[in-house]
Amino acid sequence: MEKRYEKNLSAFSEEEINRLHYLKICIVGCGGLGGYIAEEMARAGIGMITLIDGDVFDESNLNRQIVCNEKNIGKKKASETKKRIEQINSEIQITAIDEAADEKNCKEVFRDCQVVFDAVDNIPARILIEKKAEEAGVPLVHGAVNGWYGQVCVIYPGDRIIEKIFSDGAAETVNTKEGDRTGNEGAKAGAPAFTPAAVASVQTAEGIKVLLKKESILRKKLLTMDLMDQEYESIKLDG
């Protein structure tokens, strides 16, 4: 086994580390969450990564998005993430799709993946990703952040958790300066770096467990994370 993975033996067996080299993931969204997920999956030794994001880096991303730096403002997030990952682990096959997630690219990419990561920033995209992951028969690891708060869950085809979280009876349209229920987070949206770092790390851990066929603790449960009061709890989503 390569020396670069020696320190991962405290968590994985050599056989598990080798198995990761042959598996493929897709990360949809290369911002706060997606950058950290890509970084951690690369260091774990995943074999193939496809990155989907049509956005470009903005100065306001410097506070939290690990791939964003002063030199790549204005450049495509997916391609910039690819460049960073290539510097960490040149053995990984990385594909960058510099387009927003849509029916076509999700369908083409998801069918070859073993896990998809939901790292986008709006509800309509999350609903699309869950639908396409289900059609492709691939597990999805959902994560979301705002301020000091975050949430994570693991969704298998048929679970339809995004619908349960975002489309229940409480989700009636409200428009205020704090955003609206369509997924527009408004002017106060965002988070400091530690929130997406924490949430993305939980997503990565869950994603690796799915890849290695370990029990998914967060299947049909939503882990809510409050980094201000350090309160973490799992809510059952399906009896």
């Binding site: 705002n146 349960k164 979280i165 229940d168 009876g169 409480a170 409200v174 428009n175 205020t176 704090e178 955003g179 609206d180 229920r181 408004g186 939503l222 709890e233 809510i235 059952k236 989503l237 009896g239």
Partner: peptide
């Protein structure tokens, strides 16, 4: 605007 959902006794329910 930022209201999410409710849970009763640890289980997500409808509002």
């Amino acid at each position: 605007a930022r209201f999410g959902f409710v849970a009763v006794n640890g289980m997500k329910v409808m509002i």
